[in-house]
Simulated scan of single mutants.
Amino acid sequence: MGFALIFSGQGMQHPAMLPWLATDALVRLTCERLGVGDWRQQLADPAWAANNRNAQCLLTGLGLAAWQQLANDLPVPAAIAGYSVGELAAFSAAGVFTAETALDLANDRAEAMDRCAAETPGGLLAVSGLSMEVLDALCQDTGLAVAIRNGVDSAVLGGPLAALARAERAALQLHAHCTPLKVSVASHTPWMRAAAEHFAQTLAPLPLQRPRSVLFSNAADRVLDAAQAKTALATQIAQTVRWDECMDNLHARGVHCVLEVGPGQALARIWNQRYPEVPARACDDFRSAAGITSWIHSHY
């Protein structure tokens, strides 16, 4: 049934990501929007890399540039999805809006989320090794919310900074593995409700298109039309990302392999743990675009 295309979220960005990515018009436009000359040099600055607006705009633009540099040598994906802000690149790759619109939306989304974070400073904490029941109880005890569900014993928790610190201490006492993410907002939690409402207003007048490819959402299931796309993109800002269900939807399409576009290998690793019979690789695994396309073709 072909391959699934998935776009990473923020938190794993690093200067050496996508080592094969050429500096094309979209990469230059992304740098122009951010007011930088060399994006790799900028990512070497931890404060710049962790800035919410910088990360969301950069990853949206670079993810789409990477896909465009691969797409001509690959068949149309059997299904597409994005993780958190990766949905902007995913929806654009599926034909819902242009890459330039995706950059506009990334900027607007980040600014709206930053306004919420200014009122309640927060962040995200990845936790693995605890059941969802324990994680739910941990959230109730510490005042957090489940931002992303990745699997039966893996999730990302979000909320105010003091609550995150309490949750990390409690999770470590339960022998969990904890990783604070390089983000400065409590994405996909109720603390982002005002940002979700603002983004819905931003999306409302835009002439979005029906997806040309099978497209799955973090907040719903399959996205079939422009109206559903608008609702899904706004809703996920303040609602739990159901990445576990998203993966199930992709797997149900009968895909032969999965390609993760973006920084790091986190999504590919999560997929391989869940579906070891269907291989997943990340673009960061490869030194050339040709290596990626060769790997995809080898699974047809």
Rank of each mutant, 00 (worst) to 15 (best):
L164E: 00
V183M: 01
A186E: 01
C139Q: 03
L135F: 13
A227T: 15
L124R: 07
R193E: 09
L21I: 07
A220M: 13
G158D: 02
A266P: 01
L70P: 02
K182L: 11
Q140C: 06
L181K: 09
P46N: 00
L105R: 08
D73E: 10
G254P: 07
Q42M: 13
L161S: 12
T30G: 06
A204Y: 06
G37K: 05
V36T: 07
P160A: 15
D114C: 11
L161K: 12
T23S: 13
Q236W: 10
V183Q: 00
A195R: 08
C246M: 10
A106Q: 00
C178Q: 02
A147G: 04
L172E: 11
Y275V: 01
Q68K: 11
L64M: 14
M192H: 04
N249I: 00
I270Y: 02
A167S: 11
N51E: 15
F7G: 01
P263C: 10
G35Y: 07
R166I: 02
V85M: 05
V241H: 03
Q236S: 03
N72C: 04
T189W: 02
A126F: 02
S288W: 04
N72I: 03
A145G: 09
L267V: 12
C116F: 03
D114P: 01
Q265R: 15
A195Y: 05
K230Q: 14
R210T: 15
L130T: 02
S131V: 10
T202L: 03
M192E: 08
Q13G: 08
A126I: 01
H188Y: 06
N52R: 01
C116V: 05
L88G: 05
V27H: 00
T30K: 10
Q273D: 14
M247P: 00
N272S: 15
Q68G: 05
M1Q: 10
C246F: 01
L21F: 09
L74R: 05
V146T: 08
W243M: 07
A22G: 09
R269W: 02
L124K: 03
L164Q: 04
A220T: 15
Q201H: 14
P77W: 00
A89H: 09
F216W: 10
R149N: 07
G11H: 00
A238N: 10
L224M: 07
L181I: 05
A102C: 11
N72K: 11
S154V: 05
T120H: 13
Y83E: 05
W191Y: 14
S131M: 09
